[in-house]
Design a protein around this nucleic acid. Structure first.
Lengths: 209, 209
DNA sequence: CATAGAATCGGACTATGGTCCGTTTAGTAA
DNA sequence: TTACTAAACGGACCATAGTCCGATTCTATG
C-alpha cells in the first residue's frame, strides 16, 4: 500500500500573501479590507454585511476588493484563515489527542469535536465561505480531507478511506450545523456525542481485527 | 420505546395544489410556469436559466412567478416534485429492497442507491433546490430523514438514529455529489459502493447482537 | 346582466454580487 | 529628478433574485 503523508500534498492556505512582489498600496489595501471585513462580520454577522459596505468601510473601491479576494466566499475564507491556521497547527503539532500520538480513532474524534467548536464560534463565516461545489476544492477543505483520510486508513486499512473521509466531513457542513443548532435546537454536546458515535461505527472496532 | 410511523408525520410535498379555491387564471399560470421551467431547465441546465427568462417563456410577469413559487429554490423543488413523488412511492409501496419487506440494512442501501440515481439524473436541479440551512426543513428532505431514521432505529435500536440519519443524508448532498462526480471524476458505481460500505459500518453488524 | 370586491397580474424598482476599463500611482532605471 | 511601465485603483456598469403596488381580471351574488 502506498503510504501518503502531508509532505506529498503540502499544506495550502488561501494565497493571502501573494507569491511575488506586492506593491505597497496593494498590501495596505489588503490589510484595510481584511480589518474592515473582520470588524463588520463580527459586529453584525456575516450574513448581514454587503460587499459594498466592506469596500466603503475599508475606504477602497469595489473593484479593488474583488481583485484582491475574488468573491465573497473567498473573502470570508481569508478572514477565517488565521483561525484555520491555528486549527491546522493543533492537528499537526498540537497535543494529543488532536495532535499526533493518540490512536487514530481518538484523533478522529478530537478532530470532529474541535471542528464543531470552530463551527459553534464561526458558523456564519463558515457558511459564507461555503459556496457551491467549488468549496470542496478549497485548500483548507483539502487539508481536512487528507487528515481524516489518513487517520481512517490508519485505523482500518481495509476501508475506502478516500470516500469515507468525504462522507464524514459532509456531516460537519456549516449548513447542517446551523440548521441542527438553531432550527432544531440541538445542543453542541449532542452533536459531539453524535460525531463520536459515527466515528466509532465507521472505523472498525478493535476486536474486528 | 415509542414507535414512530409515517402516520405520525404524514407525507408532505411542496404545496403544489393550493389548499382552498384557486382562480382559473392562477391555475393556468402555475401550469404555464412549471412547463416553461421544466423545458428551460432541461434544455440548458438549471444553472443557466434566469427567473426572468422563465417568466418570459411562460408569458407571465415576474411578480406572478414569485408569488406562485416564492423563490428560485422553491421553483426547482416544484419541478422536481413529480420525480420526488415517484421516489416516495417506491419507498412506501414499491418492491423490496427499496420498498417494505427487506431487512432494514438492505432497504437503507437501496434508498441511497436510488437517491444517487436521482442525483445522477437531476443533480443541477437538486443543487438549485438546495439553498441554505432552510433546505433541511423542506418537506421532501423531512420524508427522507424520517425514512432513514426509522430504518436505522429498526436495524439497531441502540443507536441515535435521529442524528445518524442527518449524517448519512449529508453524504448524499448535491454539492458533494457534483464535486465528486465532475471535478474528481468518481464513477457512480464507486459512489454507490461507498454508500453501501458506509451503511454497513453504520448499522450494527448482525453478529453484534 | 350588472356590480362589487377580492385575488391576481405584471413590470418598474431595489439590493447585491461581480465585471470592466479608463485613470492613477508605485517602483525602476537612466 | 524625470520618464517610463506595469500594476493597482475605483466607480460606473451589468445581471439577476426578489419586492411592491397600482391596474386588471375573475368569481360570486342579486
Amino acid at each position: 500500500m502506498k503510504v501518503m503523508s502531508y509532505a506529498s500534498s503540502p499544506f495550502e492556505l488561501p494565497q493571502i500573501e501573494p507569491e511575488g512582489f506586492e506593491r505597497a498600496d496593494a498590501a495596505r489595501n489588503r490589510e484595510r479590507i481584511l480589518c474592515a471585513a473582520r470588524r463588520l462580520f463580527d459586529e453584525r454577522g456575516a450574513g448581514c454585511v454587503s460587499m459594498d459596505e466592506i469596500a466603503d468601510a475599508a475606504g477602497v473601491g469595489k473593484g479593488t476588493l474583488f481583485r484582491r479576494f475574488g468573491s465573497r466566499a473567498s473573502l470570508a475564507a481569508a478572514v477565517l484563515s488565521e483561525r484555520e491556521r491555528e486549527f491546522q497547527e493543533g492537528i499537526i503539532r498540537g497535543e494529543p489527542p488532536l495532535g499526533p500520538g493518540a490512536p487514530p480513532q481518538e484523533r478522529l474524534i478530537a478532530f470532529g469535536e474541535a471542528f464543531l467548536d470552530t463551527l459553534e464560534a464561526h458558523s456564519e463565516l463558515l457558511l459564507a465561505a461555503e459556496t457551491g461545489p467549488a468549496r470542496f476544492a478549497h485548500p483548507a477543505y483539502r487539508v481536512h480531507r487528507l487528515h481524516v483520510m489518513l487517520l481512517l486508513g490508519e485505523a482500518d486499512p481495509e476501508c475506502d478511506s478516500e470516500m469515507l473521509a468525504e462522507s464524514l466531513l459532509a456531516a460537519l457542513g456549516a449548513e447542517l450545523f446551523i440548521y441542527l443548532r438553531r432550527a432544531r435546537g440541538i445542543s453542541l454536546a449532542r452533536l459531539k456525542e453524535s460525531w463520536r458515535e459515527q466515528v466509532r461505527r465507521t472505523v472498525a472496532a478493535p476486536e474486528r481485527v
